[in-house]
Nucleic acid binder design. Structure first.
Length: 474
RNA sequence: CGGGCGGUAGCGCAGCUUGGUUAGCGCACUAGACUGGGGGUCUAGAGGCCGCGGGUUCGAAUCCCGCCCGCCCGACCA
């Protein structure tokens, strides 16, 4: 960990690792690819959890917890599923000093174990829909790892639902996609493009996968969340049937959907700058930091004023007071900027005299003098402004870095310069997708839902194609 | 998993080529004093399985082998 932060504008990759560690979001664990989420990073995750969980409950979902270990035979029941995940599964082969009769997978995702249980629980159309979510940890033996963005173990939530009809399941997958989109844009101030995944990027075992893709400031796309319409693939593999009103037995229609701690990485890269993290107020672990500006003769009076100010604000905001005497104000300013605290309030002898505080926005570094009288209202307004302008800025960046392209030469040019999203048309042939990847490293991120998506010529072969967004993926 | 680079005090590094004093530097840390509105100054101090294991040698941070971990570039993935 360096003493000073690498400039984001100079080396985004290095900046990312530095800032995650210097801000104490996470640290490396002794096992390859594993990380410790430190208290400041976990506080962020808890805020994300709270805001998402509320939305899940509001859409009728309930939480449960399924086991970490999955018998190998369960994983093998759905052919595509096992094929997709086999390379990255960790296995338990011994327990209590004895070799197990059947080895157990440490879950790479929980479809198998949950479907097994659903087969036991579902008997009648009256049992449907089943709308269960779980907050859990997952192990996937990834070859290349990055803090938060791709780790061997990660935290996530996975929703698993079962429905009576195909239409209901599809509706659920799209509904949760919208829940995610609204969450990311409202709370994380992170604009995304949404749409359907190409077959090559589809979840192993799904009939359709939908995704939300955010654009990082180095022009690469980050998949921030996915929802899957599983059709009846798992229902048939796990024999999840119900007796319908018409007295015939039918397989259920299912969905699954998830977002992970990877979003923290997306948040860091979307908003951070050369000075460090910038957190949107709505999810920032600390929204306001109060820094006293004092000297030997003013320590008592300024300390008391800072304490009183923090106390006033604490009932409505997440407030930290930095009373450490071993650091000077300038040092503290840099530290809290690096940690991404959205708003800093400075109070010193001059401010006490004038009945004001000095407020400094993290996103713009703008300095404002605000009267103490109705500080709560002023601060609330400021935090809302910060949230709003962070989103606007990110949205502008997304728009400015989304390019219409009509041929491979244009794609190559974009990828050699700014990168970003490339809006074009694609015939849905995997060979054409591969050709783009070979030439530019970009892949199909999503095919948007927009109505005009049908008419256009494939960027590679010129045959009729649908609208698609290409980008280099994280 | 292939190619490259790295691991020495909490962090960043030097020392390794050519084996041999007590393993060094900067920052951070501790104590005290001065200081305090954008990363302060001085004085004193503490801190080391030199990544792990083996080998060569009278002697290994240094040479050899194996392993672990990290970073970058490729193939695979949330």
């Amino acid at each position: 960990m360096p003493e000073r932060l690498t400039k984001k504008s100079q080396n985004m990759s290095r900046w990312y690792t530095d800032v995650v560690r210097m801000a104490k979001l996470a640290d490396y664990a002794p096992v390859r690819g594993c990380m410790v989420i430190m208290p400041y990073g976990y506080a962020l995750w808890e805020n994300i959890q709270g805001l998402l969980d509320g939305r899940f409950k509001a859409t009728g979902h309930v939480n449960a917890s399924f086991p970490l270990l999955i018998p190998e035979s369960f994983l093998k029941k759905e052919a595509e599923h096992v094929e997709g995940f086999a390379p990255e599964v960790a296995w338990v082969t011994e327990g209590g000093g004895e070799v197990l009769e059947e080895r157990l997978a440490v879950r790479p995702t929980s479809e198998a174990i949950i479907c097994h249980m659903y087969a036991k629980w579902i008997r009648s159309y009256r049992d449907l829909p089943v709308l269960i979510n779980q907050w859990a940890n997952i192990i996937r033996w990834e070859k290349v790892t990055r803090l938060f963005l791709r780790t061997t173990e990660f935290l996530w939530q996975e929703g698993h639902t079962a429905h009576a009809t195909a239409a209901e399941a599809e509706q659920e997958a799209l509904k949760m996609l919208e829940v995610y989109r609204e969450f990311m844009e409202t709370e994380l101030a992170m604009p995304v493009i949404v749409g359907r995944k190409s077959d090559s990027e589809k979840f192993a075992g799904a009939t359709a996968t939908y995704a939300l893709e955010a654009l990082m400031s180095d022009g690469k796309a980050l998949q921030a969340g996915t929802t899957h319409d599983l059709g009846q693939n798992f229902a048939k593999a796990f024999d999840i049937k119900y007796l319908d009103k018409d007295e015939t037995e039918k397989y259920v229609w299912q969905t699954s959907w998830g977002v992970s701690t990877r979003m923290v990485g997306g948040l860091v890269m979307t908003h951070g700058d050369d000075a460090g993290l910038v957190f949107p107020p709505r999810i920032a672990p600390t929204q306001i930091v109060v820094v006293p500006i004092w000297g030997d003769d003013t320590r008592d009076i300024v300390g008391a004023a800072a304490g009183a100010l923090a106390k006033r604000l604490r009932s409505r905001f997440r407030v930290e007071t930095d009373l450490r005497d071993e650091y000077r104000p300038g040092w503290k300013f840099n530290e809290h900027e690096m940690r991404g605290v959205p708003l800093r309030l400075e109070i010193g002898p001059k401010d006490i005299e004038k009945g004001q505080v000095v407020a400094v926005r993290r996103d713009t570094k703008e300095k404002l003098f605000i009267p103490q009288d109705n500080i709560e209202v002023e601060v609330e307004g400021l935090l809302e402004q910060i949230q709003g302008s962070m989103y606007d800025r990110a949205k502008l960046f997304l728009n400015d870095n989304t390019f219409e392209v009509n041929n491979m030469d244009e794609m190559i040019k974009v990828m050699r310069t700014t990168r970003g999203f490339m809006s074009t048309h694609w015939c849905m042939d995997p060979a054409c997708e591969q050709a783009v990847k070979d030439a530019t490293k970009a892949t199909v991120r999503v095919m948007p839902f927009e109505a005009d998506q049908s008419n256009g010529k494939c960027v590679v072969c010129g045959k009729p194609g649908k609208k698609a967004y290409f980008a280099q993926a994280y």
